[in-house]
Design a protein around this nucleic acid. Structure first.
Length: 1025
RNA sequence: GCAGGUGUGGUGAAAUUGGUAUACACGCUUGGCUUAGGACCAAGUGGAGCAAUCUGUGCGGGUUCGAGUCCCGCCACCUGCACCA
């Protein structure tokens, strides 16, 4: 009987006692460092997601051990930090007391779960012996100028009462307490991670990490190439001519320019559009705003700053309309010396670039939106390339649907075929001038247009998001009907005196185009404009209003209808202009050819960029630059539960790092008053005994920095410490680290992509540059695991669907639980945990257990079984190499099924089988291994030792090969028969056999064989006609 | 909006990389063993059809003797990032 509780407990204890998974780091010859993501000992115990990641590492570690490697699987606790502290606050206990309990609980859980942890090298980040080195890293970075203090606009979390790093804001809220952070200007400590931006980016190229992780890091670093341009800003009220012609206008006189007082740099990715910069915008938080604002605008500006300051980033991003105010100041566009107004607006972020931009409304959507709202000038400087240069994807299309000509049947002679032709010609020309490709399919029947016939033509056309549909009269109704009946997205829909249709409340205007208007059209069309004229027939006006009611969009009622029918010139005066306005791109952000740009005219975007950069550099007005989104890592936390920043402020000597001999700066154990205060300083600020100290340089009285360091620093270097956790002279043992580092395999959730994993890479690079290591990628192989869902849904406490590993460990056993988790699916994808599924894994354990009865040492296995065994060895081994644990388990299950129908199983097969199973179900495998020792008496010493001392089996290629196969016979690529043949059957023979088959004859009978395709050892395909 | 990913039975998912679609498991159906079973054993299980056979990997095209796999065009969902100049 399989008693998982008994055997799992027994082996977990025995492994620790026998040091089965405790390698001798000094003597090890073939090291393999398998690392679990540093767990923080939460009071809720081990989370299934972490447990899964641990399992992925552990299974590989066990496999590697069986392959003869010296495997190191250390464990420790990331016990400092806001997460632990917040929980302690919640339960009103000191973090220390709470952790004593939760760590014990964690240790207990982890050790009973059958993971091969080396408990002799446990580390705890809250141990002064550990954080001494965390602080030491700080001081080293400080020496190198990589740790520095600055005043900056920071994310202040009112929930956690501390500043946070940018990386710790997720979806606009605090990663820990989900509060929206406020923006505050504060002086804090930073790590200069931006100094490594390019290296962090370049390193990704060659790293064997999950693509999604690398991708997330790439995005976060956010490299963009462009130029920085210097603008002179003035708050004086000098009168200078506005908006001179860029090409011919004279420069402002020297004297005028010299009165400008400030120089502000902007970053742009589009230096080629510099001639189109018609205004200048600064972030409301920009430090110079106050100085440049004119007295007249002061009130407005201050009001605006106050208003936006109160908004969180999240609120700002969600704001539908851009807002801003004029500062009264002007900037000089360096390329043409134009005087352009300086605004402040919160769509310009202080945190990116320089916090100021040149606005090019014609070629940037945000600037355009802003310019339109505040009536700022828009100047086009890039033209879309001519049709020849355009590819089909960006080619704009226009579909004109004209109305039904009334011919001579009606006295309404406006709608004669000739007039329509004339009107179409005019419209077509207009559109083509605007770079549209025009379609105008014929209406099949002139007087009673047949929608279905017409639709057939339209469906063939390439109508897409760039397309405009102009529908005139009946054509308008057709357009709306066509859009109602499909899901196409288009750019603009223009209805001109559109045909009649039924109303929403069934008031029938006309049943000619009887259909239901799909309200959803408005979501699929960027702009809807409905034209009708005052002098149209009443029903047409009614119908236009109806369309507007149903579709939304703008309704333009024009004065006269000349433009619709074009019986004679002149065409209605309003319409051409309006049409022109509508057809123009709201702003063109793509590449094209420069116009209105002096020396850039005629150049394509790429060349224009290059030339502009060259020009800026020659004139010392700017230069080509690379900008990164990545910002420096703010590591100060106004909290208690972390390693104190090892800095001393001396009135005489200034800011001093605590020297190595004085480290660690111990965190005082506090029973009371350790709660965060929220006044911008950590609670340690009030602890005089801690704060008051002496200057390490002059010995005079000094004060300590009261803040502690970000928890992510603790975990950014822990893998170093594992190799020599008790070394009190060095951060790590150089010899051992050289041997064991970097880590061979690391698995964890991708939520750490830009946090832990980015910081760790940075610290690794910094330590490398300090000459401490010879590598700068900490983890040779990293795999991001998918999320474990419960029955298809995210697990959460509120839903009550949290899977607790301990519970399942007790119910079905950790062997079964771990196996099930791995079996669920590929490790990078999300998969769904189900209770009945985990039972299946347990049944497998029981089936394995029952096989034991069949072992017969005097038995020799059937060839078939040996073949299956060897095929499985190969497949499982291959799967391990690719970390396809799910299929490895499936293969072992299959082998189990094959074995369970046998009456006898030989000892040799059993031995190999157990080793294959051991990484997944270590306790069961050990148990059966040790009881096999009894069965074999003392013939084999090895069974008395742990199974993990055994050797992973090797497959024998000769035994795997099939000599008989099922040859697949296809007719025209479809399976019609399979026939057993020797594997090396020749094409001729195969063809003969195939054609003799009754099943095949049935198909070939009376048909002509055109071709025969033969794939050796696989199939024969007969092509017939 | 941008980027990345995914789409195959009732469910989780396989598919040797262009060659028998649905391995393995869950669930379900039927039968056996049982006082009983949420245990075990046996058989079955994509859909339609009595059958031969047809059909079937999100949808529509294409390449090919042959497409889940490759190409083009859509659709849906998920995950990041998001006013990034």
């Amino acid at each position: 009987m399989y008693n998982h509780q008994k055997i799992e407990k027994k082996w977990a204890e025995k492994w620790v006692k026998d040091k089965t998974f405790t390698p001798d780091l000094e003597k090890a010859k073939d090291p393999y460092y398998a690392l679990f993501m540093f767990p923080y000992p939460s009071a809720e115990g081990l989370h299934i997601g972490n447990f899964y990641a641990f399992t992925c590492v552990d299974v590989m570690a066990k496999y590697k051990k069986l392959q003869g490697k010296d495997v190191f699987e250390p464990i420790g606790f990331d016990a400092f930090g806001i997460h632990s502290e917040n929980y302690a606050l919640k339960i009103n206990e000191t973090p220390r007391k709470m952790l004593n309990r939760t760590i014990a609980n964690f240790r207990n859980q982890l050790s009973s779960a059958g993971l091969g942890c080396d408990w002799t090298r446990e580390v705890d980040t809250t141990d002064p012996e550990y954080y001494k080195w965390t602080q030491w890293i700080f001081t080293k970075l400080f020496e190198k100028g990589l740790a520095y203090q600055k005043e900056a606009l920071l994310n202040w979390c009112p929930g956690c009462k501390t500043v946070l790093a940018d990386e710790q804001i997720e979806n606009g809220v605090c990663e820990r307490c989900k509060t929206a952070p406020e923006k505050k200007i504060m002086k804090q400590w930073f790590f200069r991670i931006t100094a490594y931006a390019q290296r962090l980016l370049d390193g990704l190229e060659t790293m064997d990490w999950s693509d999604i992780t690398k991708h997330a890091q790439r995005n976060w670093i956010g490299r963009s190439e462009g130029a920085s341009v210097k603008f002179q800003i003035s708050n004086s009220k000098l009168q200078t001519p506005q908006h001179r012609c860029a090409t011919t206008g004279q420069a402002n006189s020297k004297s005028e320019i010299s009165n400008f007082k400030y120089e502000i740099e902007v970053f742009t990715t589009r230096p080629d559009t510099l001639f189109g910069a018609t205004y200048f915008v600064m972030s409301p938080e920009h430090p110079l705003v106050e100085k440049i604002t004119s007295p007249e605008q002061k009130k407005e500006v201050e009001k605006y700053i106050k208003k936006t300051g109160a908004k969180s980033d999240l609120e700002r991003a969600e704001a539908k309309e851009k807002t801003g105010v004029f500062t009264g100041a002007h900037a000089i566009n360096p390329v043409n010396n134009e005087k352009i107004p300086v605004w402040i607006a919160d769509y310009v972020l202080m945190g990116y670039g320089t916090g100021a931009i040149m606005a090019v409304p014609a070629h940037d959507e945000r600037d355009f939106e802003f310019a339109e709202k505040y009536n700022l000038p828009i100047r086009q400087v890039v033209a879309g390339k001519t049709q020849k240069h355009k590819n089909t994807k960006t080619q704009k299309h226009c579909l004109i649907i004209h109305g039904s000509p009334r011919c001579d049947k009606s006295k309404d002679t406006d709608y004669t075929p000739d007039n329509i032709k004339h009107w179409l010609g005019w419209l077509k020309k207009r559109l083509e001038n605007n770079n549209y490709k025009v379609y105008n399919p014929q209406m099949p029947t002139p007087w009673e247009p047949d929608y279905q016939e017409w639709k057939k033509q339209i469906d063939k056309l390439d109508i897409n998001e760039n397309s405009v549909i102009v529908g005139h009269s009946a054509g308008g109704a057709f357009a709306v009907r066509w859009l109602s009946e499909n899901k196409k997205k288009i750019d603009k829909l223009i209805l001109i005196a559109a045909g009649k249709t039924i109303t929403d409340d069934n008031k029938r205007l006309h049943n000619f185009y009887d259909f239901k208007i799909n309200q959803n059209i408005k979501n699929r069309v960027n702009k809807i404009i409905i034209f009708v004229s005052e002098d149209e027939k009443k029903y047409r006006i009614a119908s236009a209003k109806l369309y507007q009611k149903e579709l939304g969009g703008e309704l333009r009622i024009l004065k006269d209808r000349g433009h619709f029918t074009v019986t004679a010139n002149p065409i209605n005066k309003e319409f051409p202009e309006l049409l022109e306005e509508i057809l123009k791109d709201k702003c063109f952000v793509g590449d094209g050819i420069n116009i209105n740009s002096d020396f850039l005219n005629g150049l394509e975007t790429e060349q224009a960029k290059e030339k502009m950069i060259k020009w800026l550099e020659e004139n010392e007005l700017g230069k080509g630059t690379v900008n990164y989104k990545l910002r420096d890592w703010c590591i100060s936390r106004q909290r208690y539960w972390g390693p104190p920043v090892p800095i001393v402020y001396c009135n005489k000597c200034g800011v001093q790092a605590v020297p190595e001999k004085d480290l660690p700066v111990e965190l005082p154990e506090m029973e009371k008053g350790w709660e965060p205060v929220g006044d911008g300083r950590g609670p340690l600020a009030k602890v005089n005994k801690f704060i008051k100290t002496v200057c390490p340089k002059c010995g005079g009285s000094a004060e300590r920095e009261p803040d502690v360091m970000d928890n992510f620093l603790d975990s950014a270097w822990y893998y170093f410490r594992y190799v020599s956790p008790r070394d009190n002279k060095n951060i790590f043992d150089k010899k051992l680290s050289k041997k064991w580092l970097p880590v061979d395999l690391y698995v964890g959730g991708n939520e750490h992509a830009v946090l832990h994993l980015m910081y760790t890479r940075f610290i690794a690079m910094a330590l490398h540059d300090l000459g401490l290591t010879d590598f700068d990628n900490p983890f040779k192989k990293f795999r991001a695991n998918g999320m474990i869902l419960k029955d298809g849904k995210k697990m959460s406490k509120s839903k009550g669907n949290v899977v607790n590993p301990e519970e399942y460990g007790a119910k079905v056993g950790y062997d079964a639980l771990k196996t099930y988790l791995l079996f669920l699916g590929p490790l990078n994808e999300d998969r769904s945990f189900s209770d009945s599924g985990v039972q299946g894994a347990k049944r497998w354990m029981e089936r394995i257990d029952r096989l034991e009865e069949k072992i017969n040492n005097n038995y020799e296995d059937d060839k078939k079984i040996i073949k299956k065994l060897h095929q499985t060895i190969k497949a499982v081994t291959d799967d391990f190499e690719e970390q396809k644990y799910n299929t490895a388990v499936a293969r072992l299950m299959k082998l189990t099924n094959s074995l369970s129908v046998e009456k006898n199983i030989s000892g040799q097969t059993w031995e190999k089988f157990l080793i294959l199973v051991a990484p997944f179900a270590p306790a069961l495998a050990e148990e059966l291994w040790s009881s096999f020792a009894k069965a074999t008496d003392d013939k084999a010493e090895r069974f008395k030792q742990s199974i993990f001392k055994a050797k992973w089996p090797k497959h024998n290629p000769k035994l795997i090969k099939d000599d008989i196969i099922n040859l697949v016979i296809q007719i025209n690529g479809k399976l019609r028969d399979t026939i057993e043949t020797p594997i090396n059957i020749s094409e001729k023979e195969a063809q003969k056999i195939a054609l003799e088959s009754d099943k095949i004859k049935k198909w070939t009978n009376g048909k002509k064989i055109i071709k025969v395709i033969f794939v050796k050892g696989k199939l024969i395909n007969i092509v017939i006609k």
